[in-house]
Amino acid sequence: MSLQYGVSLYSYTGDMYTLLTLDDAMAEIADLGATGIEILGEGNVPGYPRPDTAWIDSWHRLLERHGLTPTNYGSWIDSRMWQHRDLTVDEGVTILQRDLRLAATLGFTSVRPKTGVVSLDLKPHPIWDRVVERSLDLAADLGIVICPEIHAPTPIKHEVVDAYLAFIERTGSPNFRLLIDTGIFQRSATFAKHAGLSEEAQEEGWRRPLAVPMSDLVDVLPFVHFIQAKFFDVTEDLTDPQIPWAEIVSTLLDNGYAGYLSSEYEGDRDPYRGVEQVRRQHALLRSLEAGR
């Protein structure tokens, strides 16, 4: 059983505004030997949420040209869209279902709904379960799995994840699963800060190592649909000082995970650094898998 490899366009943030076209980014991903591409809807789709047909046609032509498969589509359900009131359930349903349809049009098979949070440990706004439950039938019709992200500073053993697991058990739907962000396994913080993260976020633990144990991953892995391979720095000798990739890769292979590892570089945003860092990470991951 082998892993699948992809890249989130978020890894090239900055470069895609000044240095890389979408065609360039897809060419980079294909040149890695990766097959999957992940996007953020409102960040990567021109004219979001209603791209014109010319762009949609171009998107599919580029996928075919580079031999890539759309994997995970990032959706935002902004519960704090207005200062004077929260988003209603009906409004949340409209946003999620709009993005499900757009994701399906673009060929994606999973959608990560990022609902606004109500605490620093990322508890989602209480509308999340009703919004998702009312969208499960549509997700099933479109062949899409809705998978909320387990992201630092929320570990796996946490009430947020417990609520997701309870939702899976209660609904019995195969169209709701988990997305794991590997930043939760971070064990050190020996990297530079970058402009994309506030000082408050730094101090409140968004980059504080959680060091979630592999045993916790094993417990939820049967419910994991997608993994964002979050990382901050890989050195020239293919060492990652923060994320324990050898343990992660071994755990995934030993427990039958055959889904995607989608690179999500979140280190310094110097020009072309994201391109080089993703190349290093893929070389590291493939060497670890080959060593098995």
Rank of each mutant, 00 (worst) to 15 (best):
G116Q: 02
R130Q: 14
T94Y: 13
I180V: 15
I146W: 01
L138Y: 01
C147M: 13
R134A: 14
W76F: 15
V93P: 01
W128H: 04
T69H: 12
R170K: 14
I156T: 04
Y164G: 02
K157C: 02
S79F: 15
L165N: 02
K123Y: 09
R134C: 05
S75H: 07
S173C: 07
C147D: 15
D86W: 11
L68G: 05
S75P: 07
S135I: 06
L68K: 04
E159D: 12
S135Q: 04
D121A: 01
S79N: 08
F185P: 11
R134K: 13
V93C: 02
A139I: 10
T182H: 11
G116P: 03
I127D: 00
T190P: 00
I150A: 06
T94D: 14
F176E: 07
F108W: 04
D90L: 08
P113H: 00
P153K: 07
G183W: 06
E133V: 10
V160G: 00
R134S: 11
K114H: 09
A192K: 15
L179C: 13
T109C: 00
A192R: 15
S119Q: 09
L179Q: 12
D141W: 05
P148G: 09
S188W: 06
G183P: 13
H194G: 14
I150F: 13
I156S: 02
I77V: 15
F167D: 06
H151V: 09
A152R: 14
V132K: 02
L136W: 05
T109L: 00
A139Q: 08
D90N: 09
F167E: 07
W82Q: 12
V117S: 06
A104W: 00
I95P: 02
S110D: 01
Y73K: 02
C147E: 14
T182R: 10
E149G: 09
T71R: 07
S188R: 13
R101N: 05
S79P: 04
F108V: 04
P148V: 08
S188A: 14
V89A: 03
I77F: 06
I77E: 03
R187W: 08
C147S: 15
I168C: 10
T88A: 04
G92Y: 01
V161S: 01
T88D: 01
I184A: 08
H84Q: 13
T94C: 07
V117Y: 08
S79K: 09
A140Q: 12
A166L: 05
S119E: 03
T105N: 07
V93A: 03
I144F: 10
M81Q: 12
S135R: 04
P174N: 11
I146T: 05
K114F: 10
A139R: 08
T88Y: 01
L136K: 06
N72D: 15
G74V: 09
G172M: 13
E91R: 02
K193F: 13
L178H: 08
V93L: 04
V131M: 05
L102P: 00
M81K: 14
N175A: 10
R134F: 01
R112F: 02
K123D: 11
R187E: 10
K123M: 12
T182W: 12
L106P: 03
R177F: 09
P124G: 09
A104C: 03
S135L: 02
H158N: 12
Q83D: 15
L68H: 07
D141E: 15
T105M: 11
S119F: 09
P153C: 06
